[in-house]
Nucleic acid binder design. Structure first.
Length: 858
RNA sequence: GCCACUGUGGCGGAACUGGUAGACGCGGUGGAUUCAAAAUCCGCUUGGGGUAACUCAGUGUCGGUUCGAGUCCGACCAGUGGUACCA
């Protein structure tokens, strides 16, 4: 009578057992090396989704693999607990953000535990814990004292109806998500971190991050956007009393195109624009129109190019007698360069769009050598080429002309070489309740006053309501009113809270000692940090990871740590996607769909549904599969196995019910086999007497071990699963061979290795089956199987024989013949179809790549 | 718009630094078992042509480099992520 595979039963059993024995406790005892695996902690949105299942399974496999490979492993979990959804829930469901968040954390912790993840739960914390708030406030004050944080005015999205600040997400098509009112921009005092101070270092150090994906490094480099350009003063033609300036300073990265300039454009919030607007209603109107675009870069860039002619003209600095008109333009940003540009329509797409709109001249000054036509109408030529129509610059190439113009301008003392960054300082304050309060007191007399360390933490008041729109801290007079620590007069607390990216910028350093009074416990931190491997979604490639890199540098400056980079290794995984289903009444959840062949129908009414392509699982499209329903139905091991099976971790994964079913069937098959097979006691010493035939089988087993190990080491978990399955297929087929003592040992060796390699992926079933072949100790304590290299060496090698690069035949050679070109060639030429082909036509050339391929060119 | 990535059978994907395209799985299909079905097991499964040995084509599209390209280069098309207040 076969024991049925009831996943739930064994999973709960082992989860209890492991918890009881505290097997995942991170300790740095004994002489093993330490290894810190960290996955990006989740926002407690309510319940775990498939994206969580994926990233935490990936990290868990690594953590378990490292434990088997002889490391002490730190593998913690916590909660990115502040953020907007809690406030939205408060507004919609009248539940306090703290209560909502705690409920979600409790629920999600239970769910994560059901997945059998190997966390040391003793290290858990949430960013909304009073102790974490206190530590973060201490760090902030140190940053402030070290000139890494400052307060200034900056734009924010303003909803004029709701009278509140909106996040970019809450602005939909330029309108407020609740009020529907056209969103405006407003300048408000906000807190900034001086990330630009490290701009050079943040780019240059990318080269040292060897275990970071190149993709992320390139994105960060472009995001920081270092450019070596030129600042030039353009003299204003006539003194204009309204503006308090004689020049307009312009920044350019293309000084070589200066002869192609046909206009100057300044930002709507440029000082000159503002001065002119004071007495010009029309310009005022234009500027306020520009201010309605919103704050997102995407919106600004996509907006139709518009300009306002100021009627001011400036002299061209190199071309005698030439004047350029000055426009206020909606695509020029005050925050980049000098807030003013010279427009070269022929060689910049935005300038060209602008020129076409306003009928400005287009003068070609760089010759596109790949294109015969010199005319430019709709597409600007932005590449390098030969300079033409440019006086002294004619005939130079782009880079010669660039340095020539820079020298000219510098010699004339009307400009300077200048390095600029696209990156701007990090605006780290929010006008919201559910976040870590900025520990500052604003005093009419003393200005900005830090809250004294002894008065920390500044905690959020609990008695707030969310029926009023806006930031409840602003209305909370009791909480706001304090005495100034300096002069003891009445003062107000800063009512802004930190961007949640601040919370997530240093949490990794907190896990080694989460209860320490010090923000970062040096003794514990030094044993583990920085994390050896960080795992998370590619969507965090820039903001979270760049902010963390800055923050770590700040922590170094303020003496909390002594290293620059927060994460030694970084791996970014793809998203979990699913097909979408749409019926007459909108999107339909996969669980309500019934399939007949290729077609989908609504379960309740049999209405046919339209099947859409696979997209990121999202609430709006309802293409969500609840991980818990999968764990209930199949078990955590099946869910974990499927997560790793098909897609490579860095790519998007398509959720498929069939795939999950397949994984479950597979585990059931393995389960059945272990319960039917009678394993012998290990006696591996007799393996040395194995026959060549038996060694061939061992060789295949060890090849699988080698491939699995290589795949895990390089994060190719899907390939690892494939090699593991290959190994089990091989071992299952051995059942049909006549048994003998040596073969039994080979099979036992194979299955032992198999289970150990399977255990990081599906730990529960692996532990349960391990009992059947080795009743002594837990599989979690086993050593990763070692590859017998001697065995692999004896393998025969198969070589491809090609004619004109196309495969025609193969030959087999011995390992010792690997360098014998002549032998390989003669073996190839002796093959029937090669012989007949080469007698018909004489080979022109024979290329022999020893041990790999022979190509005969006819 | 800009930056980055991805594109291989019916589907997910494999192929180490350019060297046998399709490993491993899903689905499909044929068979075994069964009174029947489910489950399970075994075979086949890129497309075209051929009774067959075999042969031609084939890795988003077009072009290039090379003895040889899924892999390198150029242009294009499509999808995805980010775009600074979603996390």
């Amino acid at each position: 009578m076969q024991k049925p595979y009831i996943a739930k039963k064994i999973e709960t059993k082992w989860q209890k057992e492991w918890q009881k024995k505290n097997v995942y406790r991170a300790s740095s005892k004994n002489d093993k090396k330490n290894y810190y695996v960290l996955e990006m902690f989740p926002y407690p949105s309510g319940k775990i989704h498939m994206g969580h299942v994926r990233v935490y399974t990936l990290g868990d496999v690594l953590a378990r693999y490292k434990r088997c490979s002889g490391y002490n492993v730190l593998h913690p979990m916590g909660w990115d607990a502040f953020g907007m959804p809690a406030e939205n829930a408060a507004f919609e469901n009248k539940i306090h953000p703290a209560v909502w968040t705690k409920q979600n954390i409790d629920n999600m912790r239970t769910q994560l535990k059901a997945m059998g993840l190997s966390y040391d739960w003793d290290l858990e914390f949430a960013t909304c814990d009073p102790l974490y708030i206190e530590c973060q406030q201490k760090i902030f004050l140190d940053f402030y004292k070290n000139n890494l944080a400052y307060r200034r005015k900056a734009w924010a999205n303003w909803d004029p109806v709701d009278q509140t600040v909106l996040s970019n997400e809450q602005v939909i098509d330029g309108k407020g998500w609740r009020s529907g009112a056209k969103v405006e921009r407003r300048k408000l005092p906000q807190w900034f971190f001086k990330i630009t101070e490290y701009a050079d270092d943040l780019i240059d150090s990318l080269d040292e991050l060897k275990n970071w994906s190149n993709q992320v490094k390139v994105m960060q480099k472009n995001w920081i956007g270092r450019s070596e350009g030129l600042k030039i003063e353009f003299k204003i033609e006539k003194i204009n009393k309204q503006i308090d300036a004689e020049n307009i300073e312009v920044y350019t990265t293309r000084p070589d195109t200066i002869y192609g300039a046909s206009f100057i454009a300044i930002a709507p919030d440029h000082p000159i624009s503002k001065s002119l607007a004071a007495s010009n209603k029309e310009l005022q109107r234009f500027i306020s129109e520009c201010n309605q675009i919103g704050t997102s870069e995407e919106a600004l860039e996509k907006e139709e190019k518009k300009g306002f002619n100021t009627l001011i003209k400036v002299f061209h600095p190199l071309e005698e007698g030439k004047f350029l008109p000055v426009y206020v333009a909606n695509f020029v940003l005050m925050s980049y360069g000098t807030g003013a540009i010279f427009g070269v329509p022929a060689h910049d797409q935005r300038d060209l769009d602008f020129a076409n709109k306003l009928n400005l001249p287009i003068k070609v000054v760089v010759k596109d050598t790949s294109n015969k036509s010199e005319k430019i109408s709709k597409v600007a030529f932005t590449g390098d080429g030969e300079i033409i129509n440019s006086g002294v610059l004619n005939g130079m190439n782009t880079s010669e002309a660039k340095s020539h113009v820079m020298n000219l301008i510098e010699n004339k003392k009307i400009g300077k070489r200048s390095k600029q960054f696209r990156l701007h300082d990090w605006c780290a304050s929010r006008q919201r309740y559910w976040g870590c309060p900025v520990p500052i007191i604003l005093c009419d007399e003393c200005g900005i006053v830090p809250v004294p360390i002894t008065q920390l933490p500044v905690l959020l008041p609990e008695d707030v309501t969310f029926d009023k729109i806006g930031n409840p801290l602003d209305y909370h007079e009791d909480w706001k009113s304090v005495k100034c620590p300096k002069c003891n007069k009445n003062a107000k607390r800063e009512t802004q809270t930190f961007d949640t990216f601040v919370d997530s910028s240093w949490y990794a350093l907190r896990y080694p000692a989460p209860n320490s009074k010090e923000p970062i416990d040096k003794k514990e931190m030094i044993k583990w940090s920085p994390p050896d491997q960080y795992v998370g979604g590619i969507e965090h490639a820039i903001l979270h990871l760049l902010y963390s890199r800055f923050f770590n540098r700040g922590l170094k400056k303020t003496k909390y740590v002594d290293f620059d980079e927060p994460f030694k290794g970084l791996f970014c995984q793809g998203m979990v996607c699913h097909k979408t289903f749409k019926g007459p009444n909108g999107w339909v959840e996969p669980e309500n769909v019934r399939f007949r062949g290729d077609r989908a129908f609504l379960k309740s009414s049999n209405q046919e549904l339209k099947i859409g392509r696979s997209e990121k699982m999202s609430k709006s499209k309802k293409n969500i599969v609840d991980p818990m329903s999968i764990i209930d139905k199949y078990g955590a091991d099946t869910a974990r196995l499927f997560m790793l099976s098909d897609s490579p971790p860095e790519r998007d994964l398509d959720w498929s019910e069939n795939g999950v079913d397949g994984c479950w069937k597979y585990l059931k098959k393995i389960w059945g086999h272990f319960h039917n097979y009678k394993f012998t006691q290990p006696n591996f010493s007799i393996l040395k007497d194995a026959s060549e035939q038996q060694n061939k089988i061992r060789r295949e087993i060890h090849t699988c071990i080698q491939n699995t190990t290589d795949s895990i080491e390089s994060f190719r978990y899907n390939s690892a699963v494939a090699s593991i399955r290959k190994l089990s297929n091989l071992l299952l087929n051995l059942d049909n061979i006549d048994s003998n003592l040596i073969l039994e040992q080979i099979i036992l060796e194979g299955w032992q290795s198999y289970l150990i390699m399977l255990s990081p992926i599906t730990p529960h079933i692996a532990e349960e089956l391990w009992l059947l072949i080795n009743k002594k100790s837990s599989i979690l304590l086993q050593k990763w199987p070692e590859v017998n290299r001697e065995l692999l060496k004896e393998q025969k090698i198969r070589m491809a024989i090609q004619i004109n690069g196309k495969l025609k035949n193969t030959i087999e050679i011995e390992q010792k013949e690997i360098k014998d070109r002549a032998l390989q060639e003669s073996k190839a030429m002796a093959l029937d179809n090669i012989k007949s082909a080469t007698t018909k036509k004489k080979p022109k050339k024979i290329i022999v790549i020893p041990g790999r391929v022979i190509n005969i060119v006819l």
